[in-house]
Write a protein that binds this DNA or RNA. Structure first.
Ligand SMILES: [Mn+2]
Ligand SMILES: [Mn+2]
Ligand SMILES: [Mn+2]
Ligand SMILES: [Mn+2]
Lengths: 225, 225
DNA sequence: ATTTTATTTTAGGTATGCCTAAATTATATA
DNA sequence: TATATAATTTAGGCATACCTAAAATAAAAT
């Protein structure tokens, strides 16, 4: 069951889309993988016909992962996130640089290397953006965080995660101090401007951020002390 | 001038063979690359036709590198050896494990990653087997070492390099203490048995090794003190 | 100088993973 | 419900990098 680089990338995207929407459609996959829909159809057909099948696929209805496919997807996700953290911790990559490099390395490192990386990192639970790293048995911790934008004024929270899909956003968030483990208090919503004002724990002045940013940052509620 | 993984591997082998024999023949390449001669012919034709050409190739006469090809070869060699040392130093790989992993990673890491690795390793000159690492400008230090088997009884030497092509040999050499920077004195040749007896600096008893091993270990003469 | 043998090349094929253009199917709109 | 639009699939190609079998060439042996 050696999977090609392409198949591995398809699995990762199907995993994410089917978690979010129940299944992954041809055009969604084409978008995320940056290939044409016709290419996706061909690959889905092959992955569904593989032995053992990696996905269930119905014409015009999209794909979901089989148990095998999900296991393979989680293994790549584990490698990807371990690599991101490794690059950040050991090779001084910034959090907006790690994804691109990990995206290539994830298909090429051995199981041994993945284990060694986990060891030198001390069996980490989260990558540099706060995304959870599946444990060695590929179990994913349940997450409780929700978008910063849903905080009500007065609520205190701790940042757990920042969406990693947009390197520009990561640089912006970092410049504001919006990083995992940062504590903050919601100050006010301004619906007309679609902004939210927050007070970071270690910062003098409150800052105001737009809705887009607020929805890319995920927090856990902290009890008001 | 983005080179495929295969082309990169061809360049590395052509580099080595043309250094050793002046040129690389089709069947030598087929052996080292573990593909059929017909496949090599096809690839050599393509690499010679590339713009800019990576090799000069004459039917039935084999290939040599162009300046461009040599530069590309040295870049991959640098990456390979940096990776080997990195795996050894930072991820606890033994010297017989590093090659296989580096062989895949060398085609995939970015120039940035290669630079970062060089930095955390302190701009190293040799890989774990003692092979020289081309400097950032791809210059290779001139080597003075010669096979241990050529030592004359009484001569003192320091091990610089052990051939890395045979993982089994590496484990054997390591078990004997034959590693770069080990000091030793030649004790005796036994031509009938095709062996050489040597005394390692840090070891009580002299050891006797066969000719094959002695020719895989390279040393520099040390002045008798 | 032939002839035999070994090496190398050519010719024709396979698998992957991508593409475009055309055909089909599903969905939305009137 | 018919029709327009959007999504998806099929059909036919291309590039890469392999393969085998047959043909051509070079090298070695007589
Ligand atoms: Mn990522
Ligand atoms: Mn990837
Ligand atoms: Mn090596
Ligand atoms: Mn390689």
């Amino acid at each position: 069951m050696k999977l090609s680089r392409s198949a591995q990338d398809y699995l990762k995207v199907i995993y994410r889309l089917s978690n979010r929407y129940g299944r992954a459609t041809t055009s969604q996959l084409a978008n995320w993988l940056e290939v044409k829909p016709a290419t996706v159809t061909g690959m889905l057909q092959k992955m569904a016909r593989a032995a053992p099948p990696l996905i269930t696929y119905q014409k015009h209805r999209g794909a979901t992962l089989t148990t095998n496919g999900e296991k393979a997807a989680l293994q790549i996700i584990r490698r990807h996130r371990l690599l991101e953290l490794f690059l950040h911790e050991k090779l001084d990559y910034t959090w907006d640089e790690v994804h691109e490099e990990a995206e290539r390395l994830e298909h090429v490192i051995s199981e041994k290397m993945s284990q060694r990386i986990a060891i030198v990192l001390g069996d980490p639970c989260r990558d540099p953006h706060g995304d959870p790293i599946p444990d060695p048995d590929l179990q994913l911790a349940l997450l409780t965080e929700f978008p910063l934008g849903d905080l009500q004024p007065g609520q205190q929270a701790i940042i757990r995660r920042v969406r990693d899909e947009d390197a520009e956003l990561l640089r912006y968030a970092d410049s504001l101090g919006l990083r995992p483990l940062t504590r903050l208090t919601a100050v006010a919503h301004t619906p007309i401007a679609q902004t939210i004002t927050i007070q970071l724990a270690d910062t003098a002045e409150p800052i105001t951020i737009g809705q887009y940013t607020a929805n890319q940052v995920f927090v856990d509620l902290e009890p008001n002390q």
